[in-house]
Design a protein around this nucleic acid. Structure first.
Lengths: 241, 241
DNA sequence: CTCAAATGTTGATACAGATCAAAAAAACCT
DNA sequence: AGGTTTTTTTGATCTGTATCAACATTTGAG
């Protein structure tokens, strides 16, 4: 296959029109022309690798990003250098919205495994949004969704036991994989135990112990980073009890 | 003073044009005409009293609200009935943004003391925003700001000790009062110790003890709900240590 | 004004989860 | 492949904060 061939195939494959993720990041009835207008804004860079930054805390805010493949973690580093995980992002998820305020990225976004992205310059997107009401509405909804996600996280950190937090974490991921057409019962954790613990406000050791305990109880099966949920219902019970 | 007199004075007083809070909720250079267009959307209802709901979790999302006077708490009630405080709102603060997602209020907003509000129907605001780019931009920024606020909260809940959380809480309020032209050193807490504890992920007893300890250490002076910050710097040190 | 209910404070105790320590397992180099 | 580093697991101990209990204070209702 010649280089030009590959390029044209890529160009064909990569457009919002036929992107399987568009139901996640553009779940709105935009006309074909409108989708194409959005599509024209999208910059598709080379894939990034594990440990690479999409952006770092303090960077000038320019674009938002949509995960096309792979996964990403975002976290805040506070005054005394400690990190607080804010979230993990899967294909179709949007990253960087909080940056609008103050024109600076409020957190760092680091790639957990080789991943690719769509980059959308926010000022262009804004301009387009004021011409396409449905797009504007969609953007507001995406902001609102992010607020809900963080609200749910606050509930977890504020009230739940270590076991409940881990159970919630697994169920949340499970549901998110399911929405992407992947197995809700068996999946791979691209983030470290340390990251999971930090995200949930727990020490690494506690996180590890809970995984072990859930396995001993026959609720999940853990194989390193591969997780199998054996008893979805009991996991759910744990979270709500 | 006749009834009609009072009404007209109210009408005069209450407009975005001359509202002292507009720098908080509309901090953007909109033209006089544009501000008036926003103003036309604003519904100003009678004040609500302590314990009244602005909206309850699950209500259909219709409007966003700006606190004009008084204060408000917002919280999520989860499956097993426990509440998690999401935030406290002061004059100029916006409430209800998270509701855009799913068209339902994601949390309840309850009035902490007699308070008044501006209600802005969101669909009208959206329509106006697509005609006024600066307004659209401002709305995006307000969403972004809310995301930052919640991100900061996650850092607090995830990493800090009880003492650090209370110190942060006091400094945060202090700064917010200051931005409203009120004293940053002395203020009134309209929320209960229970609410503060819940917000910070602490038991009431712990919260109360920390207030006492901070007072014993000469850092603050507590008189029931009246707080005086004596040593702003030591408070700041606590948060960052 | 008086009593009941709600809110706040203080003390004693228990325990979940942090921290310390060390070994085991994986991942990463060159 | 072999050696180094990183990540994960497991065990022992410690501690901050929750919980339980009791009392004090404030608020609110009639």
């Amino acid at each position: 296959m010649t280089e030009s061939n590959r390029l044209s195939m890529d160009a064909l494959q990569i457009s919002c029109q036929n992107c399987s993720l568009s139901q996640l990041c553009l779940p709105v009835t935009l006309s074909v022309e409108d989708v194409n207008r959005v599509d024209e804004l999208v910059q598709r860079e080379k894939p990034l690798h594990k440990g690479d930054f999409i952006y770092a805390q303090g960077d000038v805010f320019k674009s938002i990003y949509i995960v096309k493949s792979g996964s990403v973690k975002s976290y805040i580093t506070d005054a005394d250098g400690r990190e607080q995980m804010l979230g993990f992002y899967l294909p179709g998820d949007l990253i960087g919205l909080a940056g609008v305020e103050g024109n600076r990225q409020r957190c760092s976004a680091k790639v957990l495994e080789t991943s690719s992205f769509c980059e959308v310059p926010f000022d262009s997107l804004e301009k387009l949004a004021s011409r396409i009401p449905a797009l504007q509405h969609q953007l507001f909804k995406l902001f609102g969704k992010q607020l809900c996600v963080e609200g749910e996280q606050l509930v977890q950190l504020g009230q739940k036991t270590a076991e409940q937090r881990v159970a919630w974490f697994l169920l949340d991921l499970s549901a998110r994989f399911a929405r992407r057409g992947l197995s809700s019962a068996e999946f791979y954790l691209s983030m470290s135990r340390h990251d999971i613990g930090n995200f949930l406000g727990l020490a690494v050791e506690t996180t590890s112990r809970i995984f072990t305990r859930l396995q001993q109880d026959g609720i999940i099966e853990v194989n390193r980073k591969q997780i199998k949920i054996l008893e979805h219902d009991r996991l759910k019970q744990l979270v709500e009890s």
